[in-house]
Amino acid sequence: MAGRTLLMSLVRRNLVNGVRSYSNDAPPINVKYGNREVVGFGLNGEASYLDLEDFPYPAIRYKEITPDIQALKEKEKGDWKKLSTNEKKELYRASFCQTFAEIDAPTGEWKSITGCAAFGIGIALWIFILLKTYVYPPLPHTFSREWQLATYDRLVKLDANPIWGDWKRKEK
C-alpha cells in the first residue's frame, strides 16, 4: 500500500525512473495488454475485466484477439444484417464473459452458506451443553422456585419498596 502511494505521488510529479513524463492519466485507449484490447477507462482507471451490473463496461475485452475474432471484427465493420446470429454472439462473447441474465442467475451459493451457518450453530450448541454439564458448578439453592416465592412473600410482609399510585399521598 505504501509503495503504491509513493509510486502514485512520483507519477503525479512526473519523476518515475528519473524520466520526466508528460501524462499521468490512465493508459490511452486501444493500448493492448497481451493480446487483449483496452477499450475504456475501467472501474478505477485500471485495465481489468469485471462482470458487474453496476459498471457494465469493463476496461479490457474478455478474450484475446484471435484470427477468427479478427475476421469477425472486419466483417462487423460492414452491414450488420449480413452477420448471422451466431457471429453476433461470438462478437459479444469476445468482449464480455456473461450477459446480464447470466450475472443475475442464481448460483445456489446460499445453500452452502446456510449449511455452514447451521453447522456452526450446532457445534456452538453442543459446546454450550457440554460446558453446562461438565464445567459449570450447579446453581445455588437461591435459584429454586420455592426460595424465590418465599423471598417475595417476605418482601411483601416487610412492605419493602412499596409503589403507590399518588406520590403525594401514602396510604396503608
Rank of each mutant, 00 (worst) to 15 (best):
W110A: 14
L43C: 03
A124L: 13
M8A: 13
T99R: 06
N30V: 03
E37N: 08
R145K: 14
L139C: 03
E171K: 15
S23R: 14
S144F: 05
T133D: 08
P67C: 05
A124Q: 03
V16E: 04
I127K: 06
K89E: 15
T99P: 01
K172F: 15
T114N: 05
D153R: 14
R4K: 13
A59F: 02
K170D: 02
I163G: 00
T133V: 13
A71H: 12
P67W: 08
R154E: 10
M1S: 12
K157D: 11
I129H: 11
K157M: 09
E53R: 11
A124P: 00
L130T: 06
S48Q: 14
H141C: 05
D25I: 02
M1D: 08
Y49L: 03
A47S: 13
E37P: 00
V135M: 10
I29N: 06
R36Y: 03
D159C: 11
W126N: 07
Y57T: 07
L10W: 11
K63V: 03
R145M: 07
E171T: 11
R145T: 01
D68I: 12
W164N: 10
D79W: 11
D51K: 04
A117N: 02
C97M: 15
T99V: 04
Y134I: 11
L15N: 03
L83Y: 02
P58F: 00
N24P: 00
P67F: 09
G108Y: 06
T133Y: 05
E109Y: 02
D51Q: 13
N24H: 14
K172W: 13
A71I: 06
Y33F: 15
G45N: 08
P28G: 05
Y62P: 01
Y57M: 09
E146A: 13
K157L: 10
P162M: 04
I29G: 01
T142M: 09
R169Q: 10
V31C: 10
I60V: 15
V16W: 06
S21H: 15
R169I: 10
A124F: 06
W167N: 15
I60W: 01
P138D: 11
L72S: 02
C116F: 04
K157R: 14
H141T: 08
S23A: 08
H141I: 05
K157I: 09
G165C: 05
F100V: 12
L52P: 00
G34P: 00
E109S: 07
L131Q: 12
E87S: 03
N14F: 09
S144N: 07
N161C: 14
R169Y: 08
I121G: 01
A59N: 01
G78L: 12
R13P: 00
A101W: 07
E87K: 06
R4N: 12
F55N: 06
T107Y: 01
K111W: 02
P56E: 04
I69T: 02
G3H: 10
D51W: 03
W126C: 14
A71D: 10
V156E: 08
F143C: 14
L72C: 04
A124T: 04
E171Y: 12
K88T: 02
A150T: 02
K132P: 00
L130V: 08
R61Y: 05
A94E: 00
Y152W: 12
N35C: 06
S23F: 13
Y22S: 11
P138M: 06
G18K: 09
V16D: 03
